[in-house]
Design a protein around this nucleic acid. Sequence first.
DNA 1: GTCATTGTACTATTCATCTAATACAAGATT
DNA 2: AATCTTGTATTAGATGAATAGTACAATGAC
Lengths: 133, 133
Amino acid sequence: MTYGDITISLDSASGVPFYRQVIQHVEHAILAGRLLPGDRLPTIRSLAIELKINPNTIAKAYGELEIRGIVITQVGSGTYVSDRKPTAPEDGLPAKIDETVARFIRDMAALGVDRASAVELVRNHKEDRTCGS
Amino acid sequence: MTYGDITISLDSASGVPFYRQVIQHVEHAILAGRLLPGDRLPTIRSLAIELKINPNTIAKAYGELEIRGIVITQVGSGTYVSDRKPTAPEDGLPAKIDETVARFIRDMAALGVDRASAVELVRNHKEDRTCGS
DNA sequence: GTCATTGTACTATTCATCTAATACAAGATT
DNA sequence: AATCTTGTATTAGATGAATAGTACAATGAC
């Protein structure tokens, strides 16, 4: 059972939902070339066991990746990387992203930060800490 | 009982919490010069009755505005516009702001959006829908 | 066809957020 | 001081997101 070169770890203290962390790891692996089109992702179950979380959480992540066309799932076979690359906010702006941006802008406004300032803060922010893989 | 020139309306279909809509209306009124320093805001109760929502919701809005120094509340007297204008992130980048930015960047990363794209999304985000004044 | 493996669907629990109901305390007015 | 008006505090209900528990259905290997 060989999967693409993907190692996923979760940080329960980060505040980022598990399923989103999984999505992030997969996308980074794809963008880094560690996962190629056609590569098979770890099984929902195997990943769930390895990460000690519920299969549904992995399923949710894979499901969202599939909606975005980044992976293709085949019942009985597995989940595979498609040709479509992640990080393409141009085509249709998935509602989730738009929502996150809207929320951020609201939150910043609630903190007394206007749009232009927020833009600069995002651009200049340092301290990455996500995804050490 | 004269209040500053402020008219607040709520859109329950917008998805934006009432208390946040109130905050935005007040801020916009201040920035537009319809509310001046020293002006008295509508009473928590009167606004609650007018908008047909619970006083606590108004109190929450006013409370947040006070934390930001935008208004000053005086028990028994009312809530007044202070000198401090909204949108003033100058003084030292409160931890809360930094935290919000960090979280946003993480969330966007989790959605497959890199930093540069996130910056652009924030800059170009439209959809104000609140406060048509 | 049989059976293990894979993804899927349905339900429940937990937790945070928003709003409300209601009682309380402090200042203003007389 | 009495009392009305103002903001405050405490508690509870409603909703939605995230995760888990568990059963189901489709595919593949034999």
